[in-house]
Every structure is written in structure tokens, then in C-alpha cells.
């Protein structure tokens, strides 16, 4: 009793904090106290769907920046940045030949805080670099070796998807840079063996005199929705860029992260 009486009153901030964390709302969200005890550090990871990506404990060498370079984490972060800024850009951008270019110009000049496109574009460049460096790190630490072979494969596909995301986005401003890069890029599809009308073997696929694979039915046409880079190509690339590829990438990322955990967490010497 006596000790209680001599104790000075709690500071205002502490009291407020205690009050907030004692409300029913707070308690309904966070099922544990501050993560300063072992028990709560376990709970904070286990009861949070996002933190749950991580294990509760991790080997010390796997936390060192010198070892991981945080490149995989940065890549995922950049993916989120691209998703967010991309969503905002979609409010102002119409994927038609008549509007696309002017919409991009307007974006820089008529919209407040007009660096959204800058962040989107530089973020895309940065993401390509971080993906490469992530792959390089994983190779140099031999982290693709058993039991992580399959996850390396998922990673390679994610690398390709990153490049495709960047490539499809390249067309959308509909400027000279855009259409010629895509013209050259998509003309390679014309030379796909068997499936492209200028590829080796395409001539063999014919019914009598009627060619099966021609400019209007080959792999390139499927990509562009036309015989050259025009209205159809812009729309197809837009849809692939905004919905198709991010969706696949998102699913594969879930697999990738899940497998990191299931294959024994971050790699380290035995």
C-alpha cells in the first residue's frame, strides 16, 4: 500500500497509450502486447497475415545486408510501388491511338504532383536492376542448390515476367520511342519457327496452295491484334500490362515466397 502511494503518476502519453491499447477496438485488431517479450514476438508474426510471410525466427546470417543485399525484398517493394502508381495513372490514361499520347502529356502538365509517371517509369527500371542483382546474389551464394531448385525456376519465370511487364509498358505512351521499340520487338515473333510466317518451317504448314501461317494468322498477329503496331496492339499491351501479367506475377510471387519458407527458409551453410 505504501509503495503505491509514493509512486509518481504515469506521464500523460503513457496513460493515453495505455488507454488506446486497452480499448475493445485495439484489442480486436491486435491479439498481443508490444513485441518486446519472446511470447509477443512470436505472436506478432503469427497473427499478422502480412508478417506471416516470414518465419518467427531466422538465422542470423540471413538478416545481414552483407549477405542478402535485400534485393528480393526491394523487388517486391517496387512491385507494390508500381501497382500503386500504375493504378493512379490508369485514372488519366486511355489506351487508344487518338488519346494515349495526349493523355501522357497532360499527365505531366495538368495533374497536380505530376511525378507519378516518373516514379512509375524509374521504378520499373529499378525493378529490372534489383531483380538481376537478386538473381546474381542467389547464384553467388549457391542458394539454387537442393532443396531450392524449383524455387529458382519460379524466380527465373518472375524475372522474365518483370521484363515483359516493362516491355508491355514501354508501348503505352505511344510516342516514337514506344512504337519502334515494340515494332522491332514484335517482329521477332514473326520469325518464330513454325508459328511465325517468316520463321523456318512455316512454309511446310500448308494445305495445298493455302498457307496456314501467314501475316494474318501467325504468332505476331496474336500479340499485336493486327498486322502492324496499331490500335489493336495498344489495347492488347495495355490489358497485358495492367491485368494479365501482374496477375500471373502475383500468383507466382505467392508461390515464390511460400517456397522460400517451405524449402528451409533463407539459405545458409549447414
Amino acid at each position: 500500500m505504501a509503495t503505491n502511494a509514493t509512486k509518481p503518476p504515469e506521464p500523460f502519453l503513457t496513460r493515453t497509450w495505455d488507454y488506446i491499447t486497452d480499448t475493445q477496438i485495439w484489442k480486436s485488431i491486435f491479439r498481443h502486447g508490444m513485441p518486446s517479450t519472446s511470447r509477443n514476438r512470436v505472436l506478432v508474426v503469427m497473427t499478422n497475415v502480412f508478417l506471416h510471410l516470414h518465419p518467427v525466427k531466422i538465422r542470423k546470417s540471413g538478416v545481414r545486408l552483407k549477405f542478402t543485399w535485400c534485393m528480393g525484398g526491394l523487388t517486391f517493394f517496387l512491385f507494390l510501388v508500381e501497382t500503386f502508381t500504375g493504378l493512379l495513372l490508369m485514372f488519366y490514361y486511355r489506351p487508344t491511338v487518338a488519346y494515349a499520347y495526349m493523355d501522357i502529356i497532360d499527365l505531366a502538365e495538368q495533374v497536380p504532383l505530376g511525378i507519378m509517371r516518373e516514379i512509375h517509369r524509374w521504378g520499373a527500371h529499378a525493378m529490372v536492376i534489383t531483380v538481376w542483382l537478386h538473381m546474381f546474389r542467389v547464384f553467388m551464394t549457391g542458394s539454387y542448390k537442393p532443396p531450392r531448385e524449383f524455387n529458382w525456376n519460379v524466380g527465373v519465370i518472375l524475372l522474365v515476367l518483370t521484363l515483359l511487364l516493362s516491355f508491355t509498358g514501354y508501348l503505352l505512351p505511344w510516342d516514337q520511342l514506344a512504337i519502334w521499340a515494340i515494332t522491332v520487338g514484335s517482329n521477332m515473333a514473326r520469325a518464330t519457327p513454325l508459328l511465325g510466317y517468316e520463321g523456318p518451317g512455316a512454309q511446310l504448314l500448308a494445305l495445298g496452295d493455302v498457307k496456314m501461317v501467314h501475316a494474318g494468322s501467325d504468332a505476331r498477329f496474336a500479340l499485336l491484334g493486327g498486322r502492324f503496331v496499331g490500335e489493336g496492339a495498344l489495347l492488347r499491351f495495355y490489358v497485358l500490362h495492367c491485368v494479365g501479367i501482374p496477375l500471373i506475377a502475383g500468383i507466382l510471387m505467392a508461390v515464390h515466397f511460400w517456397r522460400v519458407r517451405k524449402d528451409g527458409g533463407i539459405s545458409g551453410p549447414v
Binding site: G216, F221, F228
Partner: peptide, 12 residues
């Protein structure tokens, strides 16, 4: 599905 990628009429 593959055939869906090739429209019958092209507005070029």
C-alpha cells in the same frame, strides 16, 4: 481460346 485472338474483321 487461341482462335479468339484472331478477329474476323480488321479495321486497318
Amino acid at each position: 481460346t487461341a482462335r479468339f485472338l484472331f478477329p474476323n474483321v480488321l479495321f486497318e
